[in-house]
Design a protein around this nucleic acid. Structure first.
Length: 174
DNA sequence: TATTGGATCGCC
DNA sequence: GCGATCCAATAG
């Protein structure tokens, strides 16, 4: 069975919708001749100037420019000097938005996701496609999908104003 | 040019 | 609770 990477059509939509629908999809990593697939279990949505918890809250900077770029590309950044965080860009080109991949089945936490899959800023701005070695597939069976239950909470450890902190833009597969 | 602090993790 | 450890962002 041929498996296809989800492309621009999937990611160039409302960030909240993409975030929710990423749960139950698979993050696939190919490196060193080996391919591994992980069920996505936890994500968070971030947008632009309307979202004070977002890196893009104050416009474009060197770090966040990928968030303004084409959807379906990776936004990776270094946090606390030692961990990387992986995001997939959403919305139309020019509209800053992304979904943070916070957890996978068996891998809990955004820093650990990147450590486990060997993700660094080398993937910054690269497409979610087989060509980059990191992409997303819809592998779940119909039966599995019927069993998915989604929990929605406030985002973890974010800054910004109270309004942004209160938004329940974290999605977790129960 | 200098200072600050973060979408984290693991150990105390 | 707190230190590790880097560098982008911001202030000056």
């Amino acid at each position: 069975m041929t498996r296809k990477a989800l492309g621009a059509k999937f990611f160039e939509r409302s960030t909240l919708r993409v975030a929710r629908e990423l749960l139950g999809k698979y993050l696939v990593r190919r490196r060193g001749g080996k391919t591994r697939a992980f069920l996505i279990t936890e994500v968070e949505a971030y947008t632009g100037k309307d979202d004070m918890s977002s890196h893009a809250a104050n416009g474009m900077t060197k770090r966040n420019q990928a968030m303004f770029g084409r959807s379906g590309h990776w936004y990776v950044y270094l946090i606390y000097g030692m961990y990387h965080c992986l995001n997939i860009v959403t919305e139309t080109h020019g509209t800053p938005a992304a979904v943070l991949i916070r957890g996978l089945a068996g891998v809990s936490g955004p820093g650990k996701v990147c450590r486990e899959l060997g993700i660094t800023t080398a993937l910054y701005g690269k497409p979610a496609a087989k060509s980059s070695g990191l992409w997303v597939e819809d592998r779940a069976s119909r039966i599995q999908k019927l069993g998915f239950r989604i929990r929605q909470t406030a985002r973890i450890n974010v800054g910004g104003d109270e309004k942004a902190k209160k938004r329940r833009w974290r999605f977790v597969l129960a």
